[in-house]
């Protein structure tokens, strides 16, 4: 059975929710039909439901093993979900086949730099730069500079990237990160909003805007942004943590305790969550628990320092 025509039309018109329903109905009849699976994944991707898009793409990949677009999109989902190593594993074989594919180099370079594989990432950037100055190369350079804490260098590259291509995905979000790290919070917020104009499902922009709203004590706005972030990355610890801090700030101490306990149970190294949990316990007059959490924070911080010292 081919892909339902009406679903294709709905997707084309941007009515993704209705299209998703129709694709799912078609897949109930023929669960192994690759076309509706791919289209369903695309619909999920376009509505920012990246985890679900990834799941569908993974299901369709054995059915279309030679389809580069499926692999490429799957790697892009992994990038957006922070699964950098998985993305690299998908892109490596493609790069060997077509080392001159600029789009592929760009995606691979991005993943490598975010995975802190700076040296290999730099080689990929060099390869992109050989094709001339481009917005993509500037964005990649900027992310590498941000990793190296060269914020003003990154800011200049990002501004150039936006000048070359004002619609380049993620460029505004990264500019927001750079500006925010220099204390330019208002300019950062404007950059994140610009990113959301281009891509309403950009996780970083939504999360960071939420954190800025929280900074200015606009709790309900912040909360709705974090909830929106959780739709894109269900169960994301950073978004869950931010919600817990709002609960704590608005007096919902018990809710905050439950959420933070879940977070530290799932991620015992989550320093920020332990920090807030200590505060929660003190508020609840559970001094011993608060002291224990504070001791964990000290231990994690000391470990972080030792690692940094060893890295020098």
């Amino acid at each position: 059975m081919p892909c339902p025509i009406s679903a294709l039309r709905l997707s084309h018109e941007g009515r993704f929710a209705e299209a998703i329903t129709q694709y799912n109905q078609a897949l109930k009849i023929q669960p192994k039909n690759p076309q509706p699976l791919v289209n369903l994944a695309l619909a999920y991707y376009k509505t920012g439901r990246i985890a679900e898009a990834r799941e569908k793409l993974e299901a369709v990949r054995p059915l279309l093993p030679d389809n580069r677009q499926v692999t490429f999109l799957l790697a892009d989902c992994d990038l957006r979900l922070g699964e950098y190593k998985k993305a690299i594993a998908l892109l490596d074989p493609l790069e060997k086949e077509t080392p001159d594919d600029l789009a592929l180099s760009y995606l691979l370079g991005t993943v490598l730099i975010r995975d802190q594989q700076t040296e290999r990432g730099s080689h990929v950037i060099d390869r992109i730069l050989r094709h001339g100055d481009s917005a993509e190369a500037r964005l990649l350079l900027a992310t590498a500079k941000l990793n190296a804490h060269d914020v003003s260098g990154a800011q200049q590259d990002l501004e150039k990237a936006i000048e070359l291509n004002p619609k380049l995905p993620e460029a505004h979000a990264y500019l927001g990160l750079a500006l925010g790290s220099t204390g330019d919070y208002d300019a950062a917020a404007a950059a994140f909003r610009a990113e959301l104009q281009l891509d309403p499902y950009n996780f970083t922009a939504i999360l960071e805007l939420g954190m800025l709203a929280k900074r200015y004590q606009r709790s309900s706005e912040a909360l709705s942004l974090f909830e929106r972030a959780l739709i894109i990355h269900p169960g994301d610890p950073a978004a869950e943590y931010q919600i817990a801090t709002i609960e704590l700030a608005t007096g919902k101490v018990e809710e905050a305790r439950q959420r933070l306990e879940m977070l530290v149970w799932a991620s015992p190294q989550f320093l920020e969550a332990h920090t807030s949990l200590a505060t929660v316990y003190y508020r609840l007059k559970r001094k011993e628990d608060g002291d224990r959490e504070r001791a964990i924070v000290r231990e994690l911080t000391a470990g972080e320092q030792t690692q940094k010292a060893a890295g020098k």
């Binding site: 003003s152 200049q156 220099t182 330019d184 919070y185 208002d186 300019a187 200015y216």
Partner: peptide
């Protein structure tokens, strides 16, 4: 110290919007 300064406006200072309230 590390801010980008391309003209006198940028060199003079940074705009405070919501931040001013804090």
């Amino acid at each position: 110290a590390g801010r980008v300064r391309r003209n006198v406006e940028e060199a003079a200072g940074r705009k405070l919007d919501m931040e001013a309230r804090r």
